[in-house]
Nucleic acid binder design. Sequence first.
DNA 1: GAAATAGTGTCTGTTAGACATTATGCC
DNA 2: GGCATAATGTCTAACAGACACTATTTC
Lengths: 258, 258
Amino acid sequence: MQTEEQLRDFILNGQLYYIPHVSLDCAIFGYHEQQLKLLLIKHKAIKDWCLPGGYIKRTETLVQAANRNVKERTGIDNLFLQQFKTFGDPDRAKTSQFDEDKWFETVGIRIDKTNWLIDQTISVGFYAITDFSRTEPQSDVLAVQCAWFDIDSLPKLDFDHDEMVKEALHTMRVQLYHYPIGYNLLPEKFTLSEIHALYETLLGKKLDISNFPKKLIALGLLKKLDEKRSIGAHRSPHLYMFDKEKYDEALKEGLVLS
Amino acid sequence: MQTEEQLRDFILNGQLYYIPHVSLDCAIFGYHEQQLKLLLIKHKAIKDWCLPGGYIKRTETLVQAANRNVKERTGIDNLFLQQFKTFGDPDRAKTSQFDEDKWFETVGIRIDKTNWLIDQTISVGFYAITDFSRTEPQSDVLAVQCAWFDIDSLPKLDFDHDEMVKEALHTMRVQLYHYPIGYNLLPEKFTLSEIHALYETLLGKKLDISNFPKKLIALGLLKKLDEKRSIGAHRSPHLYMFDKEKYDEALKEGLVLS
DNA sequence: GAAATAGTGTCTGTTAGACATTATGCC
DNA sequence: GGCATAATGTCTAACAGACACTATTTC
């Protein structure tokens, strides 16, 4: 939604293209060089930062809608994307506090409490993981800011988004043991140290460097290459890459790490 | 919903009390004496059997709504209840095939395609487990039949409910290893054979009888009683019961079985 | 005492995780 | 050669699972 024209149509007629009362919110985790970040947006008419989210077109599946949202914000497609929980507490959005005048002042289009955007909404939560260094957070007419925040210093979020982040992080960490991860998050060829750091950062805890890759190698997910990389001082580590076939199989079938 | 009066109000004005476009469906599993069943309903205006489901009141949480639905159908409250997935494919309910005349003929109240019940709906899936011998499946004005079906001989279900059952069963079986189960499904005092049979039936696979209880006893979930029960021929087994405190703690914190 | 079942004990192969050692390349 | 790091190897304790054995009760 980049033009005033589109915005007006969305606000006034959106219920024709989108399913009202249902939204989705995406916890988009970003990894790069041992940093874990979360993508947040600042909505024009909402006080605090929020998870990026949106509505579901009447013609698309939930996953397609989530994918579309993630792409709109990050420019990246086909990330690892998982539905984690649906939120529907009646007090999650405080629609009763909706201030018509403030909305008009900030957005420039007058709506009242019967507008489809204002009525009670349940929200389907998805999480995704990407390499934040390859993204360019996209703001738009309503989401006037969009930026990466370090996972350890998030601002207070609006609505029930604090709880969503907590649940998303928890689900992501549990699922790290059941799905392969790393494709698109690491360079095509990477060292064991790099994938080790990725897992440590996402899990938020230490992993024994010597035991860590055993399982991944035993499962055949990692292929050792003949190349090495010179990384400055001392020994140059071997490079590895994913066996894409086994990786995709593990994505579909699931796996068990430790 | 037991009277025509209530039904008429629900159909014509329901969107005032319920959130439109959002429903929930419950896969209610029933266990008793090595049998695993699923509760299904037959809706007056729908061809095939369905999962029991309903709408979410504007004043209640999703879990409360699911609990209410489960209680309406089984008479039982506070079951083990888990949200497992939300379904929103645009073709999940084929609202385009809605037949006004057939609806009027069967339900007796005329509605058109603008009615809140007909428009596109996403559905939040929950599953629950109960002892089917303690329930009396409740039908009502719309759900004219309500009955337990053996899990291995389910009829073809309407909408996307076949997929829902598959997902619910899968989630239930995964979660059996992460939550305690058995309370309200077994007599207050039970033998190891009984709880062993419960797990085998729910998981749909054999478990070694001698290894099975080790972990549960090691975790302190099972308390051995001094009583025995005479069950006819041969040796009388010891009785066990759950340590409710540890059980509730495990419910909250989760546990790991094998 | 025979038969059937309940419950416990033992053994083994596997594995997670701690830690040690070796290999390698840069200075 | 010395040093820092990469990578592999070894060891141990725990454990799942297979199976055998003992205990107990009824007939």
